[in-house]
Amino acid sequence: DESNKPILLPNESQSFERSVQLLDQIPSYDTHKIAVLYVGEGQSNSELAILSNEHGSYRYTEFLTGLGRLIELKDCQPDKVYLGGLDVCGEDGQFTYCWHDDIMQAVFHIATLMPTKDVDKHRCDKKRHLGNDFVSIVYNDSGEDFKLGTIKGQFNFVHVIVTPLDYECNLVSLQCRKDMEGLVDTSVAKIVSDRNLPFVARQMALHANMASQVHHSRSNPTDIYPSKWIARLRHIKRLRQRICEEAAYSNPSLPLVHPPSHSKAPAQTPAEPTPGYEVGQRKRLISSVEDFTE
């Protein structure tokens, strides 16, 4: 099969070098950035008060330690540790928490760990991170309901609301924008112990962030949302095809390698009803078989 044979790379090609550099910018793992907010007593309706908090309760602090690993920003190499735009020179604080497994990295933009500057009256330095995160974990210690939209931002799609209760338990629920209701189930609340709260809140936030990324990708319907490693695979396959075309153009005697095509017509299947918005969006999480067989 010609399409699977190794090909020689061009010795000097600026377009090839640019493509390789672009490939280096696509990590081999999925990345997520999640905002974390603490809401104190009497702050449920005040964005400024929430963003001005420099610490929270003892249970909130224990919750943070379970979310991930504490890292010092100045020691991080952005090409190895995903920071979601946090500055490593102290502009966004000294520490944050991050978490990773074999296929993804997540960083938490924690408002109480970011510096509260006197010259920044409206807390814009914090909002440029927190307001651009799709998902926020809100530790609501106010005793009042927290409403979506209290923290203004164009991309605040989903809130994971943590409400501490007695007996070391917590109520965990989801809020989302109306255009996200087909992807996020907000109907079920959970009672979770303090011990298990970081794991549950983190998983709910990661799932909500993946759904938000799919939702946000609708602005470019021709580019369905893939995982990062599938995006790398697609980029490599496009690069291979372009090299083959350039080689055939410079030397017409060489065969032009095309991806294999299936001449056999697909079997006719009964027509199915058109899937609704929710089903269609969830299918976009699934990769096409052509990603692996071309």
Rank of each mutant, 00 (worst) to 15 (best):
D1H: 10
S3V: 11
N4E: 15
N4V: 14
K5T: 15
I7A: 07
L8I: 09
L8N: 12
L8M: 11
L9F: 11
P10F: 09
E12T: 05
S13R: 07
S13D: 13
Q14Y: 12
Q14S: 06
Q14L: 10
S15G: 12
E17P: 03
R18N: 13
R18F: 04
R18Q: 13
V20A: 07
Q21K: 07
Q21M: 11
Q21I: 04
L22R: 14
L22A: 15
L23K: 08
Q25F: 05
I26T: 09
S28L: 13
D30E: 13
D30L: 04
D30Y: 04
T31A: 03
T31C: 14
T31L: 11
H32S: 05
K33G: 05
I34A: 01
I34C: 01
A35E: 03
V36Q: 00
L37M: 03
Y38V: 00
V39H: 01
G40L: 00
G40P: 02
G42Q: 03
G42S: 03
G42W: 15
Q43R: 01
N45H: 06
N45T: 10
S46C: 10
S46M: 03
L48P: 11
A49C: 04
I50A: 03
S52V: 01
N53F: 00
E54T: 09
H55P: 02
H55N: 07
G56T: 02
G56S: 01
Y58L: 07
Y58Q: 06
Y60H: 00
F63Q: 00
L64I: 10
L64S: 01
T65M: 09
T65S: 14
T65A: 11
G66F: 01
G66Y: 01
L67R: 00
L67C: 00
L67N: 00
G68R: 05
L70Q: 09
L70P: 11
L70S: 05
I71A: 07
L73I: 13
K74G: 07
K74H: 07
D75P: 08
C76S: 08
C76Y: 13
P78T: 11
P78G: 11
D79F: 04
D79R: 06
K80C: 04
V81S: 14
V81F: 14
G84P: 13
G85D: 12
V88R: 06
V88I: 06
V88P: 15
C89F: 10
C89K: 10
C89Y: 10
E91S: 13
D92A: 11
D92S: 08
F95N: 03
T96D: 04
T96G: 12
Y97L: 11
C98G: 06
C98T: 13
W99M: 04
H100V: 15
D101S: 02
D102K: 03
D102E: 15
I103Q: 05
I103G: 04
M104L: 15
A106N: 02
V107R: 07
V107T: 04
F108H: 01
H109I: 04
T112R: 02
L113R: 05
L113A: 04
L113E: 05
M114L: 05
K117W: 12
D118Q: 11
V119M: 11
V119S: 12
V119E: 14
R123Y: 14
R123G: 13
R123N: 11
R123I: 11
C124V: 11
D125T: 10
D125V: 09
K126P: 05
K127D: 05
K127Q: 10
K127F: 08
R128M: 06
H129P: 04
H129C: 07
L130K: 03
G131C: 15
N132G: 15
D133N: 05
D133W: 02
F134R: 03
V135S: 02
S136G: 03
S136R: 02
S136E: 01
I137F: 01
I137K: 00
V138W: 01
Y139I: 00
N140D: 02
D141V: 01
G143C: 03
D145R: 04
K147D: 13
K147V: 09
L148V: 15
L148M: 15
I151D: 03
I151K: 01
K152I: 05
G153Q: 05
N156D: 08
F157Y: 15
F157A: 11
F157N: 09
V158W: 01
H159W: 15
V160I: 12
V160T: 01
I161H: 04
V162S: 01
T163V: 06
T163I: 03
P164F: 00
P164Y: 00
P164A: 01
P164D: 00
L165N: 02
L165P: 00
L165C: 03
D166H: 04
D166Y: 01
D166C: 03
D166V: 02
Y167F: 11
Y167G: 06
N170K: 01
L171R: 05
L171Q: 05
V172T: 01
Q175K: 08
K178C: 12
D179H: 08
G182E: 06
G182W: 08
V184C: 10
V184G: 03
D185R: 02
T186S: 08
T186Q: 09
S187M: 04
K190Y: 05
K190P: 15
K190M: 15
V192S: 01
S193V: 01
S193C: 04
D194S: 01
R195Q: 11
R195V: 08
N196H: 06
F199S: 03
V200W: 04
A201R: 00
R202M: 04
R202A: 13
R202C: 07
M204F: 02
A205N: 00
A205M: 00
A208N: 02
A208Y: 03
N209R: 01
N209Y: 02
M210P: 00
A211P: 01
Q213V: 06
Q213P: 01
Q213I: 11
H215F: 11
R218L: 13
R218N: 10
R218C: 10
S219T: 09
P221I: 06
P221M: 04
T222W: 06
D223S: 08
D223Q: 07
Y225C: 12
P226C: 05
S227G: 08
S227F: 11
S227Q: 08
S227H: 05
K228Y: 07
K228N: 03
K228D: 14
W229D: 14
A231Q: 14
A231L: 10
R232S: 11
R234N: 14
K237P: 07
R238N: 11
R238A: 14
L239K: 04
L239T: 06
R240L: 04
R240C: 10
Q241M: 07
Q241Y: 07
Q241V: 04
Q241I: 04
R242D: 14
I243V: 13
I243C: 07
E246Q: 10
A248L: 06
A248H: 08
S250R: 06
S250A: 08
N251K: 09
P252S: 11
P252Q: 10
S253K: 05
P259I: 12
P259R: 12
S261P: 11
S261R: 10
S261Q: 09
S261D: 14
S261W: 08
K264R: 10
K264H: 14
A265S: 09
P266V: 11
P266K: 08
A267T: 10
T269D: 10
A271P: 10
E272R: 11
T274Y: 07
P275H: 10
V279Q: 13
V279G: 15
R282L: 06
R284E: 15
S288Y: 06
V289G: 14
